[in-house]
């Protein structure tokens, strides 16, 4: 009751003014939306570690394996042509077919130890252009 007596005549606005928050949030949203695609443009490489955890080989989620030989030739482990080297164009075509049906397929690169870094980077770029989002590098555990 006494509180009522001391109330100021001017009406208090008890609600929070949310407009500035929304302004800030929208600006942040724009910044994230613009930067998000830029961030993914680089070649994503999961560098092989000397001692890496073994990959889960899930029957439902088979990985697609691409091998790179010392000579820089590519091999796609599919069907009958496993032993035949494959050109980057054909590799892109075949990987594209798979990623269109199976966008989350894990593509594993099995590079020879002495293969030159450039051809691995080129392969990764081909794979990414073909729609592969999940690319990993196969490594061998160090011999004891």
């Amino acid at each position: 009751m006494s509180g009522y007596r001391y109330r100021k005549p001017k009406k208090l606005v008890a609600e929070i003014n949310v407009v500035p928050y929304i302004d800030v949030m929208l600006v942040l949203l724009v910044i994230f939306m613009v930067t998000a695609p830029i961030l993914t443009q680089g070649v994503k490489v999961e560098l092989p570690e000397a001692v890496s955890a073994p990959l889960d080989v899930n029957e439902d989620d088979l990985p697609l394996i691409v091998a790179v030989k010392k000579t820089g030739e590519y091999f796609l482990e599919l069907g009958v042509d496993k032993e035949q080297p494959i050109s980057p164009a054909e590799l892109s075509l075949k990987v594209g077919k798979i990623t269109r049906q199976n966008p989350t397929v894990q593509v594993l690169v099995r590079g020879d130890k002495s293969v030159d870094y450039g051809s691995v980077v080129q392969l990764m770029s081909v794979l990414q252009q073909a729609g592969a989002r999940n690319i990993g590098l196969l490594s061998q555990p160090p011999e004891k």
């Binding site: 075949k94 077919k97 798979i98």
Partner: peptide, 22 residues
């Protein structure tokens, strides 16, 4: 979108069709 065109069992690579999520 097919990777191969088998017409009998001996020509089928099931792993390829699994990769195609069929």
């Amino acid at each position: 979108e097919m990777l191969s065109l088998p017409s009998q069992k001996s020509e089928i690579f099931f792993r390829d069709w699994s990769l195609l999520k069929q």
